[in-house]
Design a binder for these strands. Structure first.
Lengths: 224, 224
DNA sequence: GAGAATTATGAACGTTATATGAACGGCTGA
DNA sequence: TCAGCCGTTCATATAACGTTCATAATTCTC
């Protein structure tokens, strides 16, 4: 779901934080100093960073500075033993979002991570992520290899439904019930038309497709 | 400048916080319980709330709940003596943004206020900068490739909002709420008219645009 | 392989959402 | 006080969408 980078040179603490995050359904990318963090950031999509301040090579301050100066706006949460006001001042002035003093309560960490994601409007993006493909429910947007397009609502909802449960066959009636409402009087074949349009739209995209299950309905398939 | 409401039943602390904020150029609206806070919120434009949890009549939890349920998205910073995890959990789940435990360092409070305003894009910098394009909130000025023009207020605010969160779709209602006020009775279609005028105005500019998300609202796009 | 059943596809249509132009009235500053 | 700007409303034009329908293509059954 959300991708969080944990930058912390203390191996044990790094591992602890990562484990807690993973347990709470975050995707985690660990790094052990600021330099590694910067290079990993280029290669991974990251929603939020949790970072220590004191670290070898590039420290937390410089990491923050680098990121903000190169335009990264992602939330940065500092976890550190430094408890003096000047440290906090420096951190906040560089553009961090939150500051926790060790020893930290990992449960509070989770709460603060969530609050930051919410505030940065990252968390409300109901998303479906696959390799090469991402569906954004809020924006009705399908992104394939970085290229986004907005779909009409019905088409989007249909695709979203089918890809939410890949390989599971849905009858037309099921789809009608869920997307059109249980009492809809719309012709059941309307589903076909939308499926057809989706196929047209993504004819060239190899990463997913909608299969017909004759006699039953349709099913979504991802990344053969 | 920015308008901050301080909700705290301890008169001395309330006064202290207000004084510090005023000294740092914030406009302050004090309230001494949640009920008063709610009624003052209707009458004043507020950017951020600092609130205690334990208060007579409506407490901090209920205040937060009320606000979030009626659509207010402004940052809420809790200042409280309650230091247990369940308290924090409850607070964050209700939608607070930050949590400080008494006794607090007012200087750190200032830093956190600043961080929240920045993150909520309540224009701490009062500027939005992209390649080729810069929006100056103070002067209502949009600069494209060095050429500046002043926009009418509503048009400017709308553009500013949309470009503050590029690629995020805003419903007309959200935009109305934030730019016109939660209780505004202005026709929702007024948003369309302003969008239309902005498009007219920047028709020739390739660096940003406002896209329609049919059935939902609008979103800003920067530098395709 | 023929006919029946099912699905695919393209075109057309009505509906709804949005875009656009024009006009009105209030406010502001000269 | 008046002109001009601004925000708003309204009426109408336009475009997008969802649906239906007719027909073609495919698959299944016997």
């Amino acid at each position: 779901m959300f991708h969080i980078m944990v930058v912390e040179d203390d191996q044990a603490l790094n591992k602890l934080i990562c484990r807690v995050l993973i347990k709470n359904n975050y995707e985690v990318v660990p790094a052990f100093d600021g330099e590694e963090a910067l290079s990993l950031l280029d290669q991974n999509y990251i929603d939020l960073i949790i970072t220590d301040l004191m670290m070898p090579k590039v420290d937390g301050y410089d990491l923050t500075k680098e990121l903000r100066e190169s335009g990264y706006q992602l939330p940065i949460l500092v976890v550190t033993a430094k408890d003096t006001f000047p440290d906090k001042l420096k951190g906040f002035k560089l553009g961090i979002d939150d500051y926790m003093v060790k020893p930290i309560d990992v449960n509070e960490l989770l709460l603060r991570v969530e609050a930051l994601l919410r505030r940065a409007r990252i968390i409300y993006e109901k998303k479906l992520e696959f390799p090469h493909v991402c569906l954004d429910y809020i924006n009705l947007t399908v992104t394939v290899d970085g290229k986004s397009q907005i779909l009409p609502q019905k088409e989007f909802q249909l695709l979203y439904k089918l890809l939410s449960f890949p390989n599971q066959t849905f009858t037309r009636q099921q789809l009608m019930d869920e997307l059109w409402g249980y009492d809809s009087e719309t012709d059941i074949r309307t589903v076909d038309v939308h499926v057809n349009r989706l196929r047209d739209r993504f004819r060239e995209v190899p990463y997913f497709q909608i299969l017909t299950v004759r006699g039953l309905g349709y099913k979504g398939m991802v990344e053969k």
